[in-house]
């Protein structure tokens, strides 16, 4: 664990891998640290945002004392199933990148169990990691100026679901009619850290 400073507004904790991110995020949810207003888990880091006047050194010292128990990783009750039309513009490219066929990509994507590791990029955009290590693709060389709402896409080790239309550089695998972000719902986000996700082929 490495603790990096963000002036007096945040403490950025860098850990070894995504499992430790999830473990630290879970520990901070169970036992919040005083002076921390928001916890932002990401791929290899957890950012602690501080309320005004909080001493970053004190928070840094407290966070290094948190044990990162391996068994708390990816433990959650909730599973959501998301029907996907696997008709994305990049499906053929993805298959080629994975040295496979489009059919086999769909089979493997629906066979894997995915877990929301963290959210970011946009409200309700969950970064999902799967238990099939083959799913690793680079971002597109050039980002699209508009990725439609509901697009299911891949980048790095993650599957993502665009909660609304936005620019984006992820590889488009398909689309879903599931609404992943709805302010009338509590909580508004379907894909919250820790939630397990299964994809199925939409009829």
């Amino acid at each position: 664990m490495r603790v990096l400073n963000c002036a007096d507004t945040g403490v950025l904790v860098e850990v070894a891998d995504l499992d430790q991110v999830i473990a630290l995020g879970a520990a901070l949810e169970t036992a919040p640290l005083p002076g921390v207003t928001d916890v932002v888990p990401a791929a290899r880091t957890v950012l602690l945002r501080l309320s005004p006047g909080t001493d970053p050194a004190g928070v840094a010292a407290a966070v290094t004392r948190i044990p990162l128990a391996a068994d708390v990783t990816r433990r959650t009750g909730e599973t959501v199933t998301i029907p996907v039309h696997y008709d994305g513009e990049d499906l053929a490219d993805i298959a080629e990148l994975l040295g496979s066929s489009p059919r086999e990509v769909v089979r493997a994507h629906t066979a894997a169990t995915w877990t929301v590791a963290f959210c970011g990029f946009a409200p309700g955009f969950g970064y999902m990691v799967g238990d099939d290590p083959r799913f690793r693709v680079p971002r597109r060389a050039e980002a699209r100026t508009r990725v439609p709402k509901g697009s299911v896409a891949l980048a790095g080790e993650f599957t993502g679901l665009y909660p609304r239309s936005s620019p984006g550089g992820w590889q488009l695998l398909g689309h879903t009619d599931v609404v992943s972000w709805d302010l009338e719902r509590d909580p508004p986000g379907l894909l919250r850290p820790g939630v397990r996700v299964r994809f199925e082929e939409a009829a």
Binding site: C6, A7, T9, G10, L12, V40, P41, A42, A43, R44, T45, V46, L47, R49, F118, C119, G120, F121, G156
Partner: peptide, 29 residues
């Protein structure tokens, strides 16, 4: 860099293009 959390006041330097000093509506990561 793997995406990571940002705070207001961050001076982010993209590979190409202008550095951005993040204000109130900065991206979360």
């Amino acid at each position: 860099l793997p995406s990571e959390g940002m705070v207001p006041g961050s001076l982010q330097v993209p590979t190409r293009g202008e550095p951005v000093l993040f204000l109130a509506d900065h991206p979360v990561t």
